[in-house]
């Protein structure tokens, strides 16, 4: 549905790494890496490469990430049920991160601490998994998820939550393009968007002032409901029709 998702392997195991890893180790690593991503998806989070590496380390696949464990803020380990799901004791200072924000600073550090498997090799393993998906997050990192647990659409919404302007613009565009339909402005007040009417108002003002988002606009139904759409994908007249129709559905059983 979203164009930027990686479709297949983006990196292959290098010959050296292949030589260093036995087939059995690779299989175990792969399985553990997949499970790390799935665990994050199960909890409604996107997994970064760093998080997966850390989970592998925590699982004993290539030595404990000692420095990392010591570096954890107090109490964080108790917030990591996915670590427990992988058989890790609750009091083990597990590396899996509870949020995307925490994952970012880990990336380079972890890679340098875990010589057993270069991040690009792990990235290759993950990219080769047909049941996992990845895309470049707004933060610039590649993030992973299991679409059967965390859909592509939902993953994008989660990624964009920190940037309401992009969140609204891209969601409105996707709706206008794919279904096609305008969306009621109230959509963004409900989960998972969870914006206040004031925040939505500010975002819409910002979008209106931004030359890159001039396609984002709205139509008002005769009953006064506001529907948002993108002129890239929907003509104004058609959007107005679809908005009125959407509004009338609860009157047309």
């Amino acid at each position: 549905m979203n164009a930027a998702e990686s479709a297949g392997p983006t990196a292959a195991l290098t010959e050296a790494t292949t030589a260093a890893l036995t087939e059995a180790t690779t299989a175990a690593l792969t399985e553990a890496a997949i499970e790390a991503v799935r665990a994050a998806s199960r909890e409604g989070r996107l997994a970064t490469l760093a998080e997966v590496l850390a989970a592998l380390a925590a699982g004993g696949h290539f030595g404990p990430p000692e420095g990392q464990a010591e570096g954890q803020p107090d109490g964080q380990a108790g917030n990591q049920p996915e670590g427990q799901a992988m058989g890790q004791p609750a009091d083990h200072a597990g590396p899996a991160q509870a949020g995307e924000e925490a994952a970012a600073p880990l990336a380079s550090d972890t890679a340098s601490m875990l010589p057993g498997i270069p991040p690009e090799v792990l990235a290759g393993i993950l990219a080769a998994q047909p049941d996992l998906a990845s895309f470049q997050s707004l933060s610039g990192q590649t993030v992973y998820h299991a679409p059967d647990l965390l859909s592509r659409t939902y993953a994008r919404i989660l990624d964009r939550k920190g940037s309401p302007l992009v969140l609204l613009a891209e969601e409105i565009r996707a709706n206008s393009r794919d279904y096609p339909r305008p969306v009621p402005v109230e959509l963004f007040e409900a989960p998972p968007f969870g914006l206040t009417p004031e925040e939505i108002g500010h975002v819409l003002q910002a979008l209106a002032a931004d030359p890159a988002h001039q396609d984002i606009t709205f139509t008002t139904t005769p009953a006064g409901a506001v529907y948002l759409f993108s002129t890239r994908h929907l003509e104004r007249g058609y959007a107005a029709f679809l908005a009125q129709r959407a509004e009338s559905l609860s009157m047309n059983p």
């Binding site: 549905m1 409604g44 965390l150 859909s151 592509r152 659409t153 989960p191 998972p192 968007f193």
Partner: peptide, 8 residues
């Protein structure tokens, strides 16, 4: 509603 379990 958008949900992790559904693409649409």
């Amino acid at each position: 509603f958008p949900t992790p379990q559904s693409e649409y």
